[in-house]
Nucleic acid binder design. Structure first.
Lengths: 257, 257
DNA sequence: CGTCGGATGTGAGCTACTTCACCGACAACG
DNA sequence: CGTTGTCGGTGAAGTAGCTCACATCCGACG
């Protein structure tokens, strides 16, 4: 595992073949980019050049894109699917830092600072991702003040988000943290279905624990209770929120400022 | 308290008078700036202009510089002394985010993004601080790519630091977190004394709790044990580490990866 | 088809922290 | 000068969330 080399795109060579370059719909890609992220502030031609030069790859579920400590050669833009960013904390406990969905870029931290990767990136679902060469990214961003500010804004938002999470970790009881996590997932990565909001990928109880700083058994217990209360539906790792308002109330009642 | 207005420099008007402008040693200030922080990458003349235009203020211990939610009009550079940055978490629990010492700037987050302040800033000791006008800061940084990158690097470092803290919060037992906090303080804000390292300001047990996510009583208990073991000296809020190695070992033994 | 690793489900303890309830000291303040 | 608020110190008691221990189910893989 450790010996799998990192290729030029910053993505590990697939072990089983079959990470084909999918048919490329440049217009769709541009639309995604324009809508979100730092890249949206680049000049038209730079953006085009960037898209033209950056390989798009299809990844199966559960593929490792990079690991903590790897050299950070590229920035990844998610086009389809979801990628989990996580690290190991003390005692081998996994901590999920973020889940990146379509339109999200990640890996820019290592690239911008020339530092090693600080997280493991693993696909949660089958994905299409674009691997943007780090040098190119740096150059284009550096000559576009707008993009620099966008990068600063992105980092700031992350900073606020992770600070809030840290505060929650020391000040909120477990079930409240779990409820917040579910609501957050629903906010970013869900689709509306009849009678609820369905989270767009499967998550094991272990992974939910890694998002909230809890152990599997605790997650199980609370999900069970909420299943019984009719707040959620939950089977085989897929979660649907049936009563978002109830969860929100539960959170509000327990984080009284 | 809430009604105290924020003045043009982003610093609250002192209530008791006596926040005089101290004698100004431009050379010393420049040296501090050159040594650290974003400002060091500005062009010579910009930097001079900035220093000339920015008021320096002396603040007594325990003065509030700004509060969470205030408009972020200025960036603060600490010249002397220490400033605590903290927020309220759920249930009115204080969380200390950072302690800024000489050469540190803070408040850039709100200024760069035009967002409100995200923390309370309170002087822990008597301080000299320079209040840099937000607009000026933004303008100078925007036209200096070097400084933009420095800002990005600064935010990245913060991001890594707070992420690590968050991970520690969910994966390390209380005393280990406390030990880490003490070592961290010793690392950044201490002076060597005979037979130990002395932390350069007083901290109540409540505040140590706010740095580690613990309550006062727990802090008390652990400090007592370490006092008994001869690892630290501790009286009236001032802490001296007498056996840094022991603390380090304690941390390492308990965060086995 | 068996079996083996990993995920879920569930319960019986355990314990690290918190909560609560005091004391005494000390500084600020009328 | 008493009074009042904040801090440090300490112990008793409660509990949230952990560890541990199984049992079941499922998909992957020989």
């Amino acid at each position: 595992m450790d010996s799998v080399p990192t290729n030029e795109g910053g993505l590990r060579e697939p072990r089983t073949g079959l990470a084909a370059t999918p048919a490329r719909d440049t217009d769709a890609i541009l639309k995604v980019i324009r809508a979100h992220s730092i890249l949206g502030s680049l000049a038209e031609q730079d953006l085009l050049a960037l898209v033209r030069q950056s390989p798009v790859r299809a990844l199966p579920k559960n593929r490792v894109l990079f690991r903590n400590g790897d050299e950070g050669r590229s920035v990844v833009l998610v086009l389809q699917g979801h990628v989990k960013l996580s690290t190991m904390a003390a005692h081998g406990r996994e901590v999920v830092l973020e889940i990146a969905g379509p339109g999200t870029i990640f890996g820019e931290l290592a690239v911008l600072n020339g530092s090693p990767r600080r997280a493991d990136a693993t696909s949660l679902t089958a994905c299409h991702v674009m691997a943007i060469d780090g040098g190119l990214f740096r150059r284009l961003v550096a000559r576009t003040p707008e993009a620099m500010f966008a990068a600063i804004r992105l980092l700031s938002e992350r900073l606020v988000a992770v600070t809030t999470q840290g505060m929650d970790a020391v000040s909120l009881p477990a079930p409240v943290r779990l409820a917040k996590a579910l609501l957050h997932l629903a906010d970013l990565h869900s689709q509306r279905v009849t009678g609820g909001v369905h989270i767009g990928f499967q998550l094991s109880q272990r992974e939910l624990g890694a998002m909230t700083g809890l152990i599997r058994e605790s997650i199980n217990k609370h999900l069970k209770a909420w299943r019984a209360a009719g707040w959620i539906e939950h089977a085989g790792g897929s979660v649907t929120l049936r009563d978002v308002a109830a969860l929100q109330d539960f959170v509000r009642d327990n984080e009284a400022r």
